[in-house]
Amino acid sequence: MTATQPLLQIRGLRTHFSTESGVAKAVDGLDLDVRPGEVLGLVGESGSGKSVTALSILRLIPDPPGHIAAGEIWFQGRDLLTLSWRDIRRIRGKEISMIFQEPMTSLNPVFTIGRQVMEMILTHEPATSRDQARSRSIQILTEVGIPDPATRMDQYPHELSGGMRQRVMIAIALVLNPSLLIADEPTTALDVTIQAQILDLMLELKARRAGGAILLITHNLAVVAETCDRVAVMYGGKIQEVAPVRDLYRNPLHPYTRGLLASLPRVDGERATRLTTIPGSVPDIHNMPTGCKFSTRCAERFEPCDSIEPPLVEVAPDHLVRCHLHEAPPGTPAHQPASAHDV
């Protein structure tokens, strides 16, 4: 356990969706801390609940069909889930901002770039004059590396390339200096050379604005390895493993994490003749296993796995895992009581 007070503390978050085939528990008991100034990667495959987690933090879950069924999200001494809509609106964009996967559709097509950047400033700092807002917008567009920002201000999103649009999204997200930036698959839709530039840009801007943290949500384990300080691996709506980035890649503990890392083809090193695979596919969200969510695909499954969900325990300093194979070292205070093993 670290001494620093987390910037964002998620406890027992459950976000459910009512669908025709029943209740989909997209996020089902999620605990996660984001520390000040860190880049935390939240990794998972489609359906793991990573994007729903991100949207839940700012209460952007479309309701209906979704709703946050339980949990607490502590930020600056307040539980975001109990705030009034008015108060959460003051947090959105100002304290916690967000960028999304699709730079092509995430900007309003009928408003100019300038209007969309200025709107962020004028919404949260209504005392600002339009001239001030405009010059601050040009300033932030310059910072995110947009050439000729004064001209770009008067252009529409469709006149910009995908990479440029994502830079605009970053500019909008960072113009008010939020303490947390949530980036949901920010580079997935971009070409690999543009992806590298956007990731560099995000890290560079973060380095310049001391104290800001980034929650990077992605399916790409390589992106995480290059950009994050810590990594949380999600599966079946729950965190399965959290560790500093080096620990996770050097010593992955959860069979799912190990399976994911082994299944990646590499651009360097020796070429494998055959990729290692994780058998099966992600279980149906309406029919999750009762025990460990990964038990249906796990090669190392043994008798408690099907029926008892293991707790998330700290098995090494700052390295937490949710797996019956790994128990907390005796004498260390467990993240949760390890009594499940006794059954």
């Binding site: 990731l199 390589a222 390895a225 980035v245 890649y249 050097r250 990646l264 360097d268």
Partner: peptide, 8 residues
């Protein structure tokens, strides 16, 4: 990007 402990 390359996955690995020292990529960062």
């Amino acid at each position: 990007p390359r996955p690995g402990p020292d990529a960062r």
